[in-house]
Design a protein around this nucleic acid. Structure first.
Lengths: 340, 340
DNA sequence: TTGAAAGCGCTAACAA
DNA sequence: TTGTTAGCGCTTTCAA
């Protein structure tokens, strides 16, 4: 059996409550006893039992991190470890722990969230995705359980605390860059329209095209699965058009990797035949061939800030809904070039 | 305040202990009362408080997952979300929860492990790396705390439960493949020698070279950081040799991506000038140019099995140390070709 | 500044 | 088959 607060109390010749106060560094304990108690804690190798503490104070000093369900390979996106790093950094500072859920299906994910929340395992939850009609989100809202979203909420935006980039603006800027390089036929390749990232980036793309009076045919807009096959098909379709695109906006670096592959498979080259722009600035976007012009969305900060918001929220349930927009920066690299 | 076991008991007209037994599905409760109690649990929206339960039974139904510290970008390796998926899958089945630590530095990671272990937050720990003289591992051993390693322990191998591939054999086979394609000058690019994966794969490489009586000069063996700059330098060095390699064994797909990039930067091509082989079979290894010949180490299984071992271990501390070798499979793709 | 004691929500021995 | 009761290790009110 581990050493408890009572053991320390006995050995130090004080009451358990005093030891407890020393742990909390209460100002109502004399420095002398504090020192004495701390010393015996060391001697005995005492460590507070978090479960007991949590039970007494009805909290858990832990936050839950919900990944999208991993039926597809989406989880292999380095985006996730990177946000996790950001979340972890803040959590560590504030001595919070991290629970993660990596459900296989939407159902298992939901179960895991319920376990976390109903069982009081966590004080709050961070959702690493944002999509339409998400039962998990509804569950949290109904329970009035603290949560924050990384990304833009699809509904009730003003009532939910979230951390996001200005994806609309970033996408518009990226598209404008292509246009200013002389490209006129530009395609958009994105993930599921259920996800708010996709729609935001699509809107930005469309806004730029409109601003420059370029035609906006739906044929140039493709929504595809993350997986390779999807990417190839998308590319084939695009380049079978009368006026195949000479520029592309792709919503994710990893997807872009697939797109490059598909493009070369049909005998075209990047950037010679087509300029590519992308999002995320994953580590790998520097070492692809060619290195990608991509939006650095500062994934780490997305995580860090979301953790900060969540912890604020758990400390004060009445904290008003916040929105934090993490700045982005476009990295111009060799995947884009002027239209020749 | 949430609804407790007492509320249920009162409403159902039984004792709290009866309710507790119903939760545990004890065989000594009549079906009738079980039904009645379950019904009132539903009606009241009762969910057991895990903290209270954990306190009473002195366990936590949670396991800790320790990533390597993320000072470098190693965490951006899709390997991690993928093992996590495997671990999560088993954990979900057995209703365990997952704690993760993503320490920035070795120090913060260590602190997080101590918090988890000392605070009784977790019943056991999975280490997602294995390296020499790891203070964390020592800490766990001293505490006699259940843990399992994904990878091969560097010391006390026979006393530690671990899940690994036969990296030696895989690497030997991969190298032999290159040799059988006619390559004679083969280089090895690996990560830190502190990590047991690296040493195992290096040994396999060397064994194959020896078996075929090929020269094994140290100039062909490079240990480099994960990062791009390191990779470029390594490649430059290699190709400045009198007899530059025509084949390469690289210990990680993501590194290989960097290697391809570096190779093309100095005006060589893959596989025309140099055949590449690699490890992990990450999603991206199919969509690089060229697609990689790589060892599918079955990352998901590594995670799944490690979770299974750990949970066995926590249930029975005297469980003897186990070793589980997850089978691998070499995926032959276009990054290798016969020497011309 | 400190101590005594009740209670957080649950489990498990013992009794019935 | 069920109930009573004493903890699990900690916090916190109230009293001293």
């Amino acid at each position: 059996m581990a050493v408890t607060i009572k053991d320390v109390a006995k050995k130090a010749g004080v009451a358990p409550s005093t030891v407890s106060r020393v742990i909390a560094d209460s100002s109502r304990i004399s420095l002398a006893t504090k020192k004495r108690v701390r010393k015996t804690m060391k001697e005995l190798g005492y460590h507070p039992n978090i479960n007991a503490r949590n039970l007494a104070v009805r909290s858990s000093q832990a936050i839950g991190v919900i990944m999208p369900s991993s039926a597809d390979k989406a989880l292999q996106n380095p985006f996730f470890p990177e946000v996790l790093r950001g979340i972890g950094a803040f959590a560590h500072e504030t001595e919070y722990s991290l629970y993660v859920s990596t459900g296989e299906s939407d159902n298992t994910t939901f179960e895991e969230v319920q376990r976390m929340v109903n069982g009081h395992r966590v004080d709050g939850v961070i959702l690493l995705y944002s999509r339409n009609n998400d039962p998990i989100q509804q569950f949290l809202v109904e329970k009035n359980f603290p949560f924050v979203i990384v990304g833009k909420p699809c509904e009730n935006e003003s009532e939910i605390t979230y951390v996001d980039n200005n994806n609309f603006k970033a996408s518009k800027e990226l598209t404008s860059h292509l246009i200013e390089l002389g490209h006129q036929h530009i395609g958009f390749i994105g993930g599921s329209l259920e996800l708010s990232v996709t729609t935001e980036r699509l809107k930005g793309f469309q806004a730029a095209m409109k601003e420059y009076d370029l035609s906006l045919s739906n044929e140039y807009i493709i929504h595809t699965e993350f997986l390779k096959s999807g990417g190839s098909k998308a590319v084939e379709q695009l380049f079978a058009l009368d006026k195949p695109p000479t520029g592309l906006v792709v919503t994710d670096d990893l997807m872009t990797l697939g797109v490059i592959h598909a493009i070369e498979e049909i005998g075209r080259r990047c950037p010679a035949d087509v300029s590519l722009t992308s999002f995320n600035n994953l580590y790998l976007s520097e070492i692809t061939n060619p290195p990608l012009t991509t939006v650095d969305i500062n994934i780490f900060q997305l995580g860090f800030q979301s953790a900060r918001c969540l912890i604020d929220l758990t400390k004060n349930k009445n904290e008003p809904a916040k929105r934090i927009i993490v700045p982005y920066e476009i990295k111009y690299r060799q995947s884009t070039k002027p239209l020749s």
